[in-house]
Nucleic acid binder design. Structure first.
Lengths: 329, 329
DNA sequence: TGAAACTATGCAAACGTTTGCAGAGAGGGT
DNA sequence: ACCCTCTCTGCAAACGTTTGCATAGTTTCA
């Protein structure tokens, strides 16, 4: 039923080699026959079977993306960028969600390895030893995580944290809580690194958590924060921050008057919350595109001098109404 | 470099056929040899090449999902369900985002056709004629759209609308606006069908739009609604509803006192808005899973009596603070 | 004891491509 | 008239699997 290269060849009165070449190496076949082949192919509705092609070329024309949790609005936006750029480069994209589970993530990479030319790992949660088992099975590009000299797109989490600290310090906060995200998260580690900026201002940092990087993690975190008596908090991401704000409202703690709140990611919800959330915006979609660029580059150039293996994007603190000067106590 | 079935055969001292059978038809090979083969395979880290397998079996073990817009939070949740169920059934998933563009959507199906066993079309925007060109190229399952007798998972949009109308009628609203979503959307057509429920209550419906089903569509819609002088509105989806509420707030129209607002989808943001949004909740993740079930079923059974080709899920009105009795004028 | 019926395995063809090699013309220079 | 080169095309092998058919060995039964 599906039309193959054989059908086109027979119909066009040429050999399969010619048909193949008409598509893949146009300058090897006479312009006239090439047109003829292309037309009959079009007429018959022929689309080359990429699996068969991949079998011989070793290239599948696919790659994979693995994200920790699709229901976290952070990821769909970077997926969108991946998607768009992939289509431009004529690649198809396998998607998988590992549910924040590192072992599952590793299994997914291994399962994908044979069907793809490379995999993009978004905020990978894998342990170093799991990574070792996986590096080399296929080309990898990381987003939001730097592991040795593997290609990576980074969104400057430490710099983002420094901006947040600068902002809170400028407002006069002297004792600030940081709500940790998942332990396995590289972004979280980087953000903690950024916390050192506090030393400049003699600001005291109280670390709490880790918490689930979701709205549901907020209430627990909020209660701990209140008990600490800080005047401001920085949450691992916006979802967590929103959950915290919700609980603070329930407990009668006014934001921002009694508690300033800063998030990360600038998800769409952040701007619509009450009060609108001050947050560090990332260039998600651009990161997705950059990751594809890196991967494509990696696959096309000889491999020796792949050139730049890292792309650093900057992020931007968006000040909204959830932060202000601390209450005089 | 990658280890093939040949390597395993040589290493295990058997023929490739035996290795192949050890994996795919275990009862055809002696338990003892089978164990031996499986062990050497494991030791060598062999994973069958699915493309090569697909070439001969005609089954790829993949399928595709196409969504109109990843940045609409409605879709990632159904994707999550698709993902989870697909992995259980040992399928890999191609993802594509057609950017609300029907022509692109069609092209994507055609491009995928050869690499997948079937495609799940989520809220497909294709025209009937585009659909004709695509039906038959591969197995299709629709979510949120019914086209002739193709397999489909429906989330009861008409019934959802009836619940919304009942609710507003009970509150005493007599003149209500409906803000249309994309013209090409089947859900939108179905919801309009549900509007007939209004007749029961002598309620007048004012239809406006279509509007982009995004936050950005809201302001324009809000201004039109205010000009109509209705006491309540039902928006095509939550994003649009939130956009409307934002503009209403800017224009000094109090929600819900001067205007009741109902959305569709119950995206996470809905519950966190001010005021929290009354909305019709869908079972997105379950819909995703159901779609995969349908597809798998379609592919495994002979095809003749595929049994149930439709799955109807019900939805549920969630009443929050954005709706109340109309102001006495 | 021999035929019949299984059981377990191997051989080789097929799936739809790409690609190295070789051959057929055509054209050009001597 | 010859050889060389160049352009275009076809043949056939390969890629990593699955699977129909054949074969060899083992069991069953009369």
């Amino acid at each position: 039923m599906p039309v193959t290269i054989q059908d086109v060849a027979r119909e066009a009165g040429v050999s399969v080699s010619t048909v193949s070449r008409a598509f893949t190496v146009p300058d090897l076949v006479k312009e006239e026959t090439r047109q003829h082949v292309l037309q009959t192919a079009e007429r018959l509705g022929y689309r080359p079977n990429r699996a068969a092609r991949g079998l011989i070329t070793g290239k599948t024309g696919n790659f994979g993306v693995i994200v920790p949790d699709l229901s976290n609005p952070f990821f769909p936006t970077v997926l969108k960028g991946v998607q768009a750029r992939a289509r431009e480069a004529d690649y198809a994209v396998f998607l998988a969600d590992c549910d924040e589970n590192p072992a599952e993530e590793m299994a997914l990479v291994q399962a994908m390895a044979k069907q793809v030319d490379g995999v993009i790992l978004c905020s990978s949660r894998m342990t170093p030893s799991q990574l070792d088992r996986v590096v080399g099975t296929t080309s990898l590009v990381f987003i939001n995580r730097q592991v040795r000299d593997n290609p990576a797109v980074l969104m400057g989490p430490a710099a983002g944290m420094r901006q947040a600290i600068d902002h809170l310090a400028a407002l006069g906060h002297r004792r600030v809580a940081y709500l940790n995200g998942p332990k396995a998260s590289w972004s979280n580690r980087e953000r903690r690194r950024g916390l050192r900026q506090a030393a400049r201002y003699a600001m005291e940092i109280v670390e709490l958590g880790p918490f689930a990087p979701r709205f549901e993690g907020g209430p627990h975190a909020a209660d701990l924060v209140i008990a600490e008596g800080v005047t401001a908090l920085i949450a691992f991401n916006d979802l967590l921050a929103l959950g915290v704000m919700s609980r603070l409202a329930d407990r009668g703690v006014a934001v921002p008057e009694e508690m300033s709140v800063v998030g990360f990611d600038d998800i769409p919800m952040a701007g619509m919350a009450t009060p609108p959330l001050t947050t560090v915006a990332m260039q998600n979609e651009r990161a997705g595109r950059a990751a594809v660029d890196l991967l494509v580059n990696l696959l096309t150039v000889s491999g020796a001098d792949a050139g730049d293996l890292r792309r650093d994007l900057d992020c931007q603190l968006i000040v909204r109404a959830s932060t202000t000067v601390p209450a005089r106590s």
